[in-house]
Design a protein around this nucleic acid. Structure first.
Lengths: 141, 141
DNA sequence: TGTAAATAGTTAACTAAGTTAAATAATTTT
DNA sequence: AAAATTATTTAACTTAGTTAACTATTTACA
């Protein structure tokens, strides 16, 4: 492996290790990380059905089903059966769910805030720009 | 939130979502992601005991204990009791374990190789430099 | 020197979150 | 109208984490 690539691999390894540890230790006001991410996703992108969520989070339909069941019980989401296709249930964030996201001092917020505060603005812009490219590369396949 | 910071938060969110999905779907020749990471860590950094691994991976001693038990059964690691403190068992990677790491077309390798191939060298260097800074910031606390 | 405290690791019982296979309900196709 | 497809759920299972309680060993100190 070339030197530049080797350096990148090592740095990425450290970073990934951190991201995993950080996500695993996530406490989102009593709901799990995936629960929180579902609510946040629906809040940001608007209503969607279970199938969409399963695809978005790369987990199976039954896994989403259980998460959604709990989120409905907790009144963080509501379900609306579509009259034009009654198999299809649109999930929507309740005001309680929005409060959770808004008020959540969540890990990702605290991490990104910390990074934003430590990097010079120019570097932060540069980093964001390249990271966006990286995400697009990763999404390609 | 300022615009620059908002852009960073959004990009980081996408990225984190990808990293998690990618790690969760990891197949490392029949051993789990944590198993693989333990072997790789010991290979790269040299022998260590269970306690060190628990701290490194931010998981409990019993969790490490179970992983190590399996890795010993699979002959990917060996343990050596230290004569100067017989509570302490140093874990070492076997040649079979080294083969696993060397030969592993693992997810992180394929991801970093893909990124390395798509970014211009200059940008890759820039990205690595800033990512290193970011990791150091994250490690601070 | 003998006992108490600390340390390294394990075992047991539990939980959370993923999986596949099979079931249900609604819709579309032929 | 029957057959196939689609969205979701239920059931049974697996993996990987947790805490509490245990063993074995070492260290501290009256």
């Amino acid at each position: 492996m070339e030197k530049v690539q080797k350096a990148f691999f090592d740095t990425y390894t450290d970073f990934q290790c951190y991201v995993i540890a950080q996500v695993n230790s996530g406490d989102y006001n009593g709901v799990g990380a995936t629960h929180y991410n579902i609510v946040e996703y629906l809040y940001r992108k608007g209503p969607a059905n279970s199938k969409t969520l399963a695809q978005k989070f790369h987990i199976s339909a039954p896994a989403i089903s259980r998460h959604v069941k709990l989120l409905l019980e907790k009144k963080l989401l509501v379900q609306k059966q579509l009259p034009e296709d009654r198999r299809n249930f649109l999930l929507e964030v309740t005001s309680k769910g929005k409060l959770l996201v808004d008020g959540s001092e969540n890990q990702r917020h605290s991490v990104t805030t910390r990074i934003s505060g430590m990097l010079p603005k120019k570097e932060l812009e540069q980093f964001t720009r390249i990271l966006r490219k990286v995400v697009d590369i990763l999404k390609e396949e």
